[in-house]
């Protein structure tokens, strides 16, 4: 990997898309119009990507929709068309709704902590005068994001152990022993224990991103505000927060769509238990397909996830379009 990046290019990337050259886009468009028809050979550059995506991404997606109308017996390979039965079963399945609810909790809490909490934290870190400390905090907060979810999940399994776990020992030492419990083994706490782990893992990532966005705000604005006697709290609300609101908006959308795709952390820590209390859509799909052999229902859950993420992605797209105009 090359570490010698041309400084100009580096600056351009870090400066963001301020100089989004709409002209280039338009220019290439008009050139295309001028020489239409003669460049089919150029498609060779795209062929590998299109082929791989078609085979492994788009075709399975289409097939999944078809599968959701079938019931099949894995032992003799028989497939029967059952119409909307799988969807009807899903709608009457309380665990499906609980899983969806857990995804919503996941999204909501992640927005509070990973987006807004991290924004505040990033502003605090960036307000430190010493560049070395800023680096230390940003760097160390990020470490959990670099370790795999499996490792984090196994680690927190030990932290949540009822008798010997770090959390309960800590609570007992604080004299709060009455709150100690089997965090992953209780139906009303399991999903929140998983979400908490996920915040631990992910907040450093958001802090890093917000730091980058905050660094793009011209320093003069802060200096001017300071000269006017504006305190740090007001500086945050009147300057930092509004100026990074594009990043905030995008982070909200990215976080929500991530929350509806959650799988690993739940699988590693609880497999959706106890008594399916911590199932999310992803693990419930896995469970339907690979534990109870009901591939038709699994496909129907897949369609549900697809519809939800598609709507969120559209929102993201609309949002970034709007932003492009603003910039």
């Amino acid at each position: 990997m090359s570490t010698q990046a041309p400084e100009a290019a580096q600056a351009r990337v870090l400066a963001g898309r301020k100089v989004e050259q709409a002209g280039v886009l338009r220019g290439s468009g008009s050139r295309r119009a001028r020489r239409r028809g003669a460049q089919v050979a150029g498609l060779v550059w795209l062929a590998p990507a299109l082929f791989v995506l078609a085979v492994f991404v788009y075709w399975p997606l289409i097939e999944n929709v078809a599968f959701s109308f079938l019931k099949w017996n894995i032992y003799n390979g028989e497939q029967t068309f059952v119409g909307l039965d799988n969807y009807a079963n899903l709608a009457s399945d309380p665990v499906f709704w609980r899983a969806l609810g857990n995804n919503v909790w996941y999204a909501g809490l992640s927005i509070v902590f990973q987006v807004f909490g991290s924004l505040v934290l990033a502003a605090i870190v960036e307000s430190l005068r010493n560049e070395r400390w800023r680096k230390v905090f940003r760097g160390i907060y990020f470490i959990p994001s670099a370790i795999s979810l499996t490792v984090a999940g196994l680690l927190f399994y030990f932290i949540y152990q009822p008798q010997t776990g770090l959390l309960n020992v800590f609570l007992q030492n604080l004299g709060l022993g009455q709150f100690s419990q089997a965090w992953l083994g209780r139906e009303n706490t399991a999903i929140f224990a998983v979400i908490a782990m996920s915040q631990w893992q992910g907040f450093g990532y958001s802090v890093l991103l917000f730091s980058v966005a905050l660094q793009r705000i011209p320093q003069e604005l802060y200096e001017a505000a300071q000269l006017d006697g504006v305190g740090p709290v007001r500086r945050f609300f009147s300057l930092s927060a509004p100026l990074v609101r594009e990043m905030t908006g995008l982070m909200v959308i990215v976080t929500i769509s991530g929350a509806f795709q959650v799988f690993n952390e739940v699988m590693v820590m609880t497999s959706g238990g106890p008594n399916n209390a911590s199932q999310v859509l992803g693990t419930w799909l896995y469970h339907a397909g690979f534990v109870t052999n009901d591939f038709g229902s699994a496909a129907a859950i897949g369609v549900a996830i697809f519809v939800i993420t598609l709507v969120l992605a559209m929102a993201q797209l609309a949002y970034s379009r709007k932003r492009r105009v603003e910039w």
């Binding site: 795209l46 990507a49 299109l50 995506l53 492994f56 991404v57 788009y58 075709w59 399975p60 997606l61 097939e63 999944n64 599968f67 509806f260 795709q261 799988f263 859509l281 992803g282 799909l285 896995y286 397909g289 591939f295 699994a298 496909a299 897949g302 369609v303 996830i305 697809f306 993420t309 598609l310 992605a313």
Partner: peptide
């Protein structure tokens, strides 16, 4: 066509991929 894949959760394609 190339970028739309960004929107897809891998779980959605799981069942057909296993069969394939």
């Amino acid at each position: 066509a190339v970028l739309a894949g960004l929107m897809l959760a891998p779980t959605v394609a799981l069942v057909p991929l296993v069969k394939m």
